[in-house]
Nucleic acid binder design. Structure first.
Lengths: 339, 339
DNA sequence: ATCATAATCCAAAACGTTTTGGATGTCAAT
DNA sequence: ATTGACATCCAAAACGTTTTGGATTATGAT
């Protein structure tokens, strides 16, 4: 059904070579026959087979991206925004995206090997790096161009785009300190994630700046779900000397903490100050509206994609590292000065 | 760098054919040499080139999906959930997703032609159908398997998964009627979308069931943004005989209506009842929590993908049409009985 | 007439697979 | 010895492109 160069050759009487070169605009085919060939191609609705083209040229103009596994309710806006940023940038360079989904409960690396090994992508974008990240080591050893969203601890340099989590938590914690809080808790994400370490550093730095003690009991680790925010919030707020402010590592956990406060009869923004992280649409419309750290997710995706395409098209691989600066969005949940 | 069958042939001394058949598990290669070949393949880290395989087999095991264009803030959770559903189902059948982004401000059809014509996908999933949808006509005429999310008006039958919008709005409107409301407004989406027509039908049906008059002034059309919800909400709530209940066609517009009510000093859930649509995470955490219609987005994506894969693998194309039943999630924004 | 030059075209190889249709050798049955 | 059956292997074609390295013809200069 599909029209190929062979069909055009048969129809026009020229050879496949000439058809191909005419369509590609080479100057060793006369203007007259070029026009003729273009006409016929147009008339028959010829569309080049990209697979054949890619196989021949060894370039796919495709960027790979692996979606982490999800349950039935996909409640984190992060990926859609990031993806949207990547997609926008990709399509403006005529790149497409190959998306594979990591099945819940399976290890991630095999999917990477499958996609990379299959030769269907020119490069990969990595999401949610870990402190020790086998995917990065694999991609590096495989020699495929890649850009990570987030940093990692490796023996080599690699390209990444990251949002400065240390700055993010520094801003949030400073904000609470400036409102007069002295016992500030941090509901962190999983400890093996790089972002956890960076944010933790920002948290400690803010405390140190103001000579506040760092109480280990005030740092707890959740799994980014609202449920874990609720549980950790309940335990934090029932401590002997409970924290007066709580920073969570994403908006969902912050909303969990809000629920916890409510269950304990505490007024958010008055009895306890709460801040989220990521500034998802949730934050702006929560009750009360949630102070949060805007992480420029769309922009990160865009930049990551831009860097990757540069990397792919460069003759010489160049490592580029970009650190975006988040900004604090202050809303009612952080309350007013305690003085 | 990459290991090919040719390399394995050279390494083992067998022919390319035998290598290929050994790896594929044909029984015309002895158990002993098969083991040997597998060992070598493993040792050299052989990964079959999917491009070559796809070119040869004329199957790509890839599903195409085109992301509508977005601005910098991607605030609709719909796509991420849908995509997550599609991705989950796809990967459980070892299919991958090819994603292209439609650049903002450009026409949609060329992207479809590019992806379909390129031969890189076995089928497509269509999002947000329109009443008259050129994409559907194109895909039908191109003979490529596809499943639409949403219905359309065509001369032929095609496969779709849809959520019964008529039922959705019927439930929401009935709910308000049962609470004693008599003037119920509908903030619809763009009139050229099929979903608008279906929901409108449900709205009218509910009114008719209870012999309520259908006031044309109470039906207004927005563009699914919060801003348009705000504007339409302001104009509706400043009418002479203002509506006492408003159903919006997505949560974002509903939140805009909530803002409008607040600006006019009306208490949501008391002076005016409001309902959203889609039941995004926003709805549950809004202030006040928003009554909404849960549309099983993840499930739709899953079903659409499942149907598409069936369609691709069937010898005989079978049209399948699936209508999922949404359910109303009642929260504080719809208030209590007015009696 | 001969030769270089330019213009226009094309056959064949290559990309990495799978599949088709044998080829070869072994062994038991005749 | 021949035959047939079976096990094991492989050369070549095919998928649809692009690129390489000419081949052919016409043109103009000598």
């Amino acid at each position: 059904m599909r029209i190929t160069l062979k069909d055009l050759a048969k129809e026009t009487g020229y050879s496949i070579t000439t058809i191909s070169r005419a369509l590609a605009g080479y100057d060793d085919v006369s203007e007259q026959t070029r026009k003729f060939i273009l006409d016929v191609a147009e008339r028959l609705g010829y569309q080049p087979n990209q697979l054949a083209r890619q196989l021949q040229s060894q370039r796919t103009n495709t960027i790979g991206l692996i979606l982490p596994a999800y349950g039935p309710r996909f409640s984190d806006a992060f990926f859609s925004e990031f993806l949207s940023g990547v997609g926008t940038e990709a399509s403006s360079h005529s790149y497409d995206l190959l998306l594979a989904t990591q099945i819940a409960g399976t290890e991630g690396l095999p999917v990477y090997k499958r996609i990379v090994g299959s030769g269907r992508v020119d490069g990969m974008i990595l999401l949610r790096t870990q402190q020790h990240d086998p995917r990065i080591e694999y991609l590096h050893s495989a020699g495929l161009p890649f850009v990570a969203h987030g940093r990692s601890e490796t023996d080599f340099e690699f390209s990444y785009v990251d949002v400065d989590g240390e700055l993010g938590l520094l801003l949030a914690t400073r904000h609470f300190i400036s409102l007069g809080h002295r016992r500030i808790a941090f509901v962190a994400a999983m400890p093996d994630l790089m972002l956890t370490r960076h944010r933790l550093a920002g948290y400690y730095r803010a405390l140190a700046e103001h000579d506040l003690p760092a109480d280990p009991a005030l740092v707890v680790y959740g799994d980014l779900t609202q449920q874990s925010g609720l549980e950790l919030g309940l335990s934090l707020l029932q401590m002997d000397r409970r924290p007066t402010a709580i920073v969570a590592s994403n908006d969902l956990m912050a909303l969990g903490v809000v629920m916890a406060a409510r269950q304990l009869g505490l007024r958010v923004g008055v009895d306890v100050a709460i801040s989220g992280y990521d500034d998802t649409p949730l934050a702006a419309h929560a009750d009360p509206p949630l102070t949060s750290v805007n992480c420029l997710v769309f922009e990160s995706g865009r930049q990551a994609c831009r860097q990757l395409i540069e990397l792919i098209q460069a003759d010489q691989p160049v490592v580029k590292q970009l650190l975006l600066q988040p900004n604090l969005v202050i809303r009612a949940s952080s309350g007013t000065s305690r003085d």
